[in-house]
Write a protein that binds this DNA or RNA. Structure first.
Length: 418
RNA sequence: CGGAGUGUGGUGUAACGGCUAACAUGCCUGCUUUGGGAGCAGGUGACUCCGGGUUCGAAUCCCGGCACUCCGACCA
């Protein structure tokens, strides 16, 4: 799109009510707008990135057989009373509201209860299993303290997938596939190297659950990284593990601060038992369904990318999640050159658009320095510059945000960039 | 929820209890400039978070709210 038409602008200075790097940069560059503590709106650039992240997650969830749904945010008290999680003494993050009639409602902070309750209607036979159902949905959590910009909000989108299996063996099989899918997600969004599968407390139904922890100073978790097998142990079970890597047995662990970008968990029959989610096996015997839950916060992923990959000039997006594939910058200058440069860049822009390449075209009538500063801040991975200089050489100039030097290439070679 | 701090044009800051609340930036006009936020001139923009109080006089002091940030607790 043409930058002159983008309704957001950049800011020179970071807002004083944000200390977190992610929020400062995202606000300065015009990706998000703060509504109140822990509540942010997505602006056009931010929405584009969010949709990229969501697409990647969606592809990987579909690849392991996930079926996408969209459950409601408003929650029926009765459903939650069955599991005992309606009580504020049990769950202290509820946002509750009520109908005009006085009937209480909740705003969902997770969806095990409503989905399990829903699946009771559809799962009856061993033939109906296994199943995996997921959604991207807004969660509401009345955190006593929102913090770290978009990393811990009171309203945020979560991808939550729930698996339904016949027995533990079948569950384990899916759990493993989900773990692999999660690994692919974090690789694809550019966090792979710094993200560790982390052993965490497993609850009633298994020894461990697994978190995906990304090394990040803004994180809230302490993990013990095992470089031998690229895994880690969460602080909460480090003593229980006797400071030994549960995966490879290494005792050579180093302490790191990390942010939990995803987690997968064996729910066993906890919710199936409560809601009577059973199936009849081959012999006609009723069996409880074994469940698992698998969460990723796309917004937290977005924030983690900004926290970990940005530099002093601004954001540096990985290609896979960048709001645009390229930032096309026209350095128009004045006089006859200006007309020439503008026409040439307009044509290039149209060509790229016809190839379906998402381009942010800086066609504004501002100075070169401002365009470069903005481009650095916004962080689109590839920059294409057209100016009187480049036209004189019948070339275009390309460079990468991550630090590659400028290269002059022939316009005909442009397809090799994407 | 405990503790600490901060609320002043859109944004970032300044102002001893005392002049018409200042500066920078942004935005608008004109000129000028055009490869790293250039320059000049003019203009726009603030019930100083809200409500009380003290005082001849409050952005400034006091009380009460609200909001935001940070530390801690919490995060099934």
């Amino acid at each position: 799109m043409r930058q002159s038409e983008l309704f957001t602008t950049t800011r020179r200075e970071a807002p004083t009510d944000e200390v977190a790097r992610n929020a400062q940069l995202l606000i300065r560059a015009g990706y998000i707008h703060k509504e109140m503590a822990g509540v942010y709106s997505l602006l056009p650039l931010g929405l584009r990135v969010m949709e990229k992240i969501i697409s990647i997650i969606r592809e990987e969830m579909n690849a392991i057989g996930g079926q996408e749904v969209a459950l409601s945010a408003l929650q029926d008290k009765a459903v939650w009373q069955k599991s005992g999680r309606w009580s504020d003494d049990v769950v202290d993050v509820w946002f509750k509201t009520m109908l005009k009639s006085g009937t209480e409602l909740g705003l969902g902070f997770t969806h095990e209860e409503p989905l399990t309750s829903l699946m009771v209607e559809y799962i009856h036979s061993y033939r109906d299993l296994p199943r995996a159902v997921y959604q991207f949905q807004t969660k509401f959590r009345n955190e006593t303290r929102a913090k770290s910009g978009i990393m811990r909000g009171r309203e945020f989108v979560m991808k939550d997938l729930y698996s339904f299996s016949r027995d533990n063996a079948e569950h384990e099989k899916f759990y493993e596939r989900a773990k692999q899918a999660y690994t692919r997600v974090f690789n694809r969004v550019g966090l792979g190297e710094r993200t560790y599968i982390t052993y965490a407390s497993g609850g009633t139904f298994s020894k461990y659950s697994h978190e995906f922890q990304t090394l990040c100073a803004a994180g809230e978790d302490t993990i013990y990284v095992c470089d031998t097998c690229h895994s880690a142990v969460n602080d909460e079970i480090i003593d229980e593990c006797m400071h030994t890597c549960p995966q490879c047995g290494s005792r050579d662990l180093r302490t790191e601060t990390a942010v939990e970008v995803g987690n997968i968990f064996n729910l066993g029959t906890k919710f199936s038992d409560v809601f009577g989610l059973q199936y009849l096996d081959e012999r006609g015997v009723a069996q409880p369904v074994v469940m698992g839950s698998y969460g990723i916060g796309p917004g937290r992923v977005l924030g983690t990318i900004v926290e970990t990959l940005s530099d002093e000039r601004g954001i540096v997006w990985p290609k896979s999640v960048a709001p645009f594939a390229a930032h096309l910058v026209a350095l128009t200058g004045k006089g006859t050159d200006a007309v020439m440069v503008r026409e040439a860049t307009d044509t290039l822009y149209e060509n790229l658009r016809q190839r379906d390449i998402a381009v942010l075209y800086d066609d504004r009538d501002v100075q070169a320095g401002e365009k470069f500063a903005d481009a650095d801040l916004i962080g689109i991975p590839l920059r294409i510059v057209v100016s009187a200089k480049t036209l004189a050489q019948k070339k275009i100039e390309v460079s990468t945000r991550s630090g590659g030097e400028k290269k002059m290439i022939d316009e005909k070679e442009i397809h090799t960039l994407f």
